[in-house]
Amino acid sequence: MSEKSFQFTIEPWSVIRENKEYPTPIFNLLHRKMKLEAKDEKNEGDFYVLKAPDWVNVIPITKNQEVVLVEQYRYGIEQPTLEIPGGMVDPGEQPLESIKRELIEETGYSSANWSSLGKVSSNPAIMTNYTHLYLAEDCEMITSEKPRGDEHERINVHRLAVDKFLDFVADGTIHHSIMVAAVARFLLKNEQEARSEK
């Protein structure tokens, strides 16, 4: 990825007070009293944010150039989705450790060939965390046991040719925004590599 070249000019807000309003196993709802002290403006406000652990996902590609995908039911939209594998960074883990574990747990596949696709803000308007994106190449199935997710997680594993996978992103079949962000980084990586070979 290129070095940061954009110069941010907007003044930051600072936290006056922060309270945990509501805890859940996945995130905590925080109430922040914040203030802005700009040259020409003073302002205070109440803001609500979700404090969550960092997340990880991976585009896993087999030696046959197939992407390994997971189909699961998503309770927010009350529909099944087709996604790349991913999950939360557990306490004490580094993001790469977490995604290697998640890939095996969700799909039975593993890889020795990993590269980072960077990280993205999960939703900077209301969330504190980042999602770390990875590419795993030459993936191989190392266990044929049924994928074991969390207590209420049921997973079906699918393999699609890379072109078909990209078609499903383009037509909206694959629509999870953080997954689409990983695809954008994947395509940018491929484009940069192609340019450097010229």
Rank of each mutant, 00 (worst) to 15 (best):
residue 116 S to I: 13
residue 167 D to R: 10
residue 115 S to K: 05
residue 160 L to S: 02
residue 83 E to T: 15
residue 101 R to G: 09
residue 123 N to A: 00
residue 157 V to M: 04
residue 163 D to W: 01
residue 108 G to R: 01
residue 87 G to Y: 03
residue 168 F to Q: 11
residue 143 T to Y: 04
residue 90 D to G: 13
residue 150 D to T: 08
residue 143 T to D: 08
residue 158 H to V: 14
residue 114 W to I: 00
residue 97 E to V: 11
residue 132 H to W: 05
residue 114 W to H: 06
residue 153 E to Q: 11
residue 91 P to I: 10
residue 143 T to L: 01
residue 129 N to Q: 15
residue 133 L to P: 02
residue 157 V to D: 09
residue 155 I to L: 12
residue 144 S to I: 10
residue 105 E to P: 07
residue 130 Y to P: 07
residue 104 I to S: 01
residue 134 Y to M: 12
residue 91 P to L: 05
residue 132 H to D: 07
residue 148 R to Y: 13
residue 88 M to Q: 12
residue 110 S to V: 12
residue 75 Y to N: 14
residue 113 N to A: 14
residue 121 S to W: 06
residue 158 H to T: 11
residue 109 Y to G: 02
residue 160 L to T: 08
residue 145 E to S: 04
residue 104 I to D: 02
residue 149 G to A: 11
residue 164 K to G: 05
residue 82 L to G: 08
residue 112 A to N: 12
residue 149 G to L: 02
residue 92 G to N: 01
residue 119 K to H: 13
residue 110 S to A: 13
residue 165 F to A: 13
residue 110 S to D: 03
residue 165 F to S: 06
residue 84 I to E: 00
residue 165 F to N: 02
residue 158 H to M: 02
residue 111 S to T: 09
residue 167 D to H: 00
residue 161 A to F: 07
residue 99 I to W: 13
residue 116 S to V: 08
residue 92 G to A: 09
residue 151 E to N: 12
residue 98 S to Q: 03
residue 145 E to R: 07
residue 84 I to H: 01
residue 133 L to V: 08
residue 80 P to M: 15
residue 168 F to G: 13
residue 157 V to A: 08
residue 114 W to Y: 03
residue 80 P to R: 12
residue 143 T to S: 10
residue 143 T to V: 03
residue 171 D to M: 10
residue 165 F to I: 04
residue 82 L to N: 04
residue 116 S to Q: 06
residue 133 L to S: 06
residue 102 E to L: 00
residue 88 M to W: 14
residue 106 E to R: 09
residue 118 G to D: 01
residue 79 Q to Y: 05
residue 142 I to E: 07
residue 115 S to R: 11
residue 77 I to W: 09
residue 103 L to A: 01
residue 126 I to A: 15
residue 138 D to R: 14
residue 123 N to T: 01
residue 81 T to Q: 15
residue 108 G to I: 04
residue 125 A to S: 12
residue 74 R to D: 10
residue 155 I to Y: 09
residue 96 L to T: 00
residue 164 K to E: 13
residue 159 R to F: 10
residue 163 D to H: 05
residue 122 S to Q: 07
residue 119 K to F: 10
residue 89 V to Y: 05
residue 98 S to Y: 03
residue 138 D to I: 08
residue 167 D to A: 04
residue 113 N to Y: 15
residue 99 I to H: 03
residue 167 D to K: 02
residue 135 L to Q: 08
